[in-house]
Every structure is written in C-alpha cells, then in structure tokens.
Computed example of a mutant assay.
Amino acid sequence: MKLLITGGAGFVGSSLAIALKKNYPDYTIYCLDNLKRRGSELNISRLKQAGVEFVHGDIRSKEDFDALPAVDTVIEASAEPSVLAGLDGTPDYLINTNLFGTVNCLNYALKHKAAFIFLSTSRIYPIKTLETLNFKEGETRFELIDEQPVPGVSTKGIAENFPLDGARSLYGTTKLASELIIQEYNEFYGLKTVINRCGVITGPWQMGKIDQGVMVLWIAKHYFEQQLAYIGYGGTGKQTRDMLHVDDLYRLIDWQLHNLDTVNGEILNAGGGVECSASLQELTKICQDVTGKTIPIRQVTENRAADIRLYITDNTKVTALTGWKPEKTMQDIVSDIHVWLDENRAALEPILK
C-alpha cells in the first residue's frame, strides 16, 4: 500500500506515519508538510529513521501535488489548528490551508482514485449552543446532564446529530466547510471517504501552546516549573475536556484504512469520552502527582474568545460501527508526555519552556 499523509511532520501526521510504518514495514508512506509550526522540524529525522519519505511542500500549492507519485489512500491531517487563528487579523492563511488546501488534497486523491481519510474537529459544533447546554457544577468539574434543550447531547457527551447552526470559530468553520465538500466528492465523484471529528488529541511530540495543545502545555509548565492560569468561568479551573491519546487515534485510523468500505461516507465523532476526561483543576492534580512539582496558578475570571465550558465526545456511533474505543487513561497520557519531556529535554526546552 502507498499512503500520503498531509501535515506529515506535524504532531498527529508524524505519529500516524511512524506507527503505520512500524506495523506495516512494506508500505510506502509519504509525509507532506510546510514546516510552518515550530518544532515540526524535529520530526523530519524521526520520519527518516522510521523509513518514511518526507516531502517539503504545502497543501495550498496545487503544483506541490503534481510532483507527488500516485498513492492508494490520503490521510488529511494538515491544518492551522488554532481556535484563535484569524481572530486577531486576516484569516487568509487559515482559510487557504484548511479549506482550499483540502480541495487540493481531494483533487489529488480523485486523480489517483485514492481513498480519503479526513481528520476534522469537534470545533465544528457551534459555540453558543455548547455554551447554553444544561450542566451541573461538581466539586472539581462541570458536568453535562441528560435533560437538554437540543438533540445530540447527554451525559455521554456530544453526538454527531448535535445542531450545526451558529458560529463556531473560523477554524471550526473551515473544517466544517471541508466536510461538506468531502461529502460532495463522495456522492458525485465516487471517492471513498471517512470524516473523523476528533476531540482534543494529545501525546508525546505535540508542541503545545495556549491556543492548541493545552495538555502538553499544562504538563510542560509543571515540568519546567513555570506559571499557569485558570482562565475564564470564574477562574476555578472547572472547564472540562476529554483527551484522546494519539496512540488510540492511530488504532482507529489503522482500522479505517483496512476496512474503508465499512465506514465509507460516514462522519464519526472520536475522542477520549467521559472515561478519559478531566477539568483543568483535575489535570493539575495529575500533573502534580506525575511530575512531583507544584506551580503557581493564577485565576482569571474573564472568559477567552471562542472558549467553551465543557466538551465531551460521545463515541457511541464509532464504537458500534468499528468496535474501537480509547484505551489510554488520563494518567497514561500525562505519564507518557512526562517521559517524553524527560528524554528530549534539551531539544524541547527552547520550544515548550
């Protein structure tokens, strides 16, 4: 099998590529990346060592696709992933990458009759609707309840039939627009596709920032003994997310790659679920336990733009269809990232500290 992974030097793309090559050494895997995100350059040597072919290119450029050989499947893992991207200025890079870049990927797949696996995001769900859901406030976290004003939400989390009307951030909008175009290519061009609406993905080799990759950021700040802040929702740190270890995501993509007819045309939520979720307050406690360090955490009561109080993925559909469910716990995730920081401190300190 021959595969192209876009965003292939990014956290998710490189993790998938290296795991696939390890498990299927006879596969030819190309990783395309423009190396815009700081730290992605560290993955080039990792890819080469694994036997993956790195191609320096940009999905915004049709010409960069013309130079690529034919493949059997495209895994579209490229994105400008920041929820805040475009809010403080021009959204051109965001739109050209996340929307028009996806169109270039689709046309390349169509040209070679390749299957198409798309990594979308839970951020396609509208902010205001999420923010007006019924919840209860526990001692350490906010929690969803079953009685809700809209469909697609329960104590299990957010399901695929959650309403899509409303604003969701420019990032979420470009990903949703890509989803709609992918469905057209599936229906009218016969392209085999599957869309995965991923929750918060995390794990070793993610270069965490405040607006994307908060899990790694949180652990790194503890590791390097710096300061953090609970921002918004009264500054209590009760806002809650589920976390998906990139190893668990790999298991899903691996299954889809080899059973594409079963998931062809599907849209699937995929995240850590209730079982692998934590509030910032709870995450802080796990970080203290794993790192053995306690750091100062400021309280900022004002909410940040495009933030949400609570998001948990309901994996019911994807589990029923594929048998997949996450295996890594929150403790596993923090421990794995802590070991990675320890083993690569010299390279990571200038980026994450």
Rank of each mutant, 00 (worst) to 15 (best):
E349I: 06
Y171M: 10
G271H: 03
D58L: 04
I95H: 06
R38G: 13
L341A: 01
E225F: 03
M243P: 01
T129A: 09
V334K: 00
Q331D: 13
T240A: 02
T102P: 04
P126I: 10
T236E: 11
Q226F: 00
G271A: 05
K221R: 13
D33T: 04
Y223M: 02
Y24V: 02
E266Y: 11
I312F: 02
I145F: 06
G10Y: 13
I337Y: 00
N98P: 09
F224A: 03
A70G: 12
G237E: 10
A346T: 13
H112V: 10
V83I: 15
T313Y: 02
Y230G: 02
F135R: 05
V153Q: 01
A270Y: 09
I181C: 10
G10R: 12
V55E: 05
G208A: 04
S178W: 00
C198T: 13
I201M: 14
G272S: 08
R123E: 14
S169W: 08
G7R: 03
L16T: 04
L170D: 13
V150I: 14
K22Y: 02
F118C: 06
T319P: 02
Y311F: 15
H338L: 00
E76T: 01
M1D: 10
L280K: 09
L106T: 05
F54T: 08
A270H: 09
K128N: 14
T294M: 02
I333Q: 04
K156W: 03
V12M: 09
F100Y: 14
K21S: 02
S82L: 01
V334T: 06
A114L: 08
S277G: 01
P69S: 11
I29Q: 11
D211W: 09
A114S: 15
G232E: 04
R141H: 13
T132L: 07
G292Y: 05
T193F: 07
W255C: 11
N259K: 13
G235R: 05
L310Y: 14
Y233P: 04
R38I: 06
D289L: 11
L99A: 06
T155H: 02
Q227F: 03
G166Q: 09
W324Q: 01
L133D: 01
D342I: 01
L191V: 07
D211H: 13
D254F: 07
T202E: 10
Q239H: 12
S120W: 11
D58C: 02
V103H: 08
I333D: 00
L348N: 11
L321W: 06
N161D: 15
R37V: 05
S335Y: 07
K192H: 12
L130F: 08
T291S: 04
L352Y: 04
H258L: 15
Y27T: 15
T102D: 05
A278W: 00
D242N: 03
G265R: 12
P126G: 10
L283E: 03
L170F: 14
R123M: 09
T193A: 09
N161Q: 11
E266C: 15
K128E: 14
I182W: 02
D248K: 02
Q299V: 06
Y93P: 00
L84Q: 13
D33Y: 04
D92Y: 13
A306I: 06
A278P: 00
I127R: 15
P126T: 10
Y233D: 14
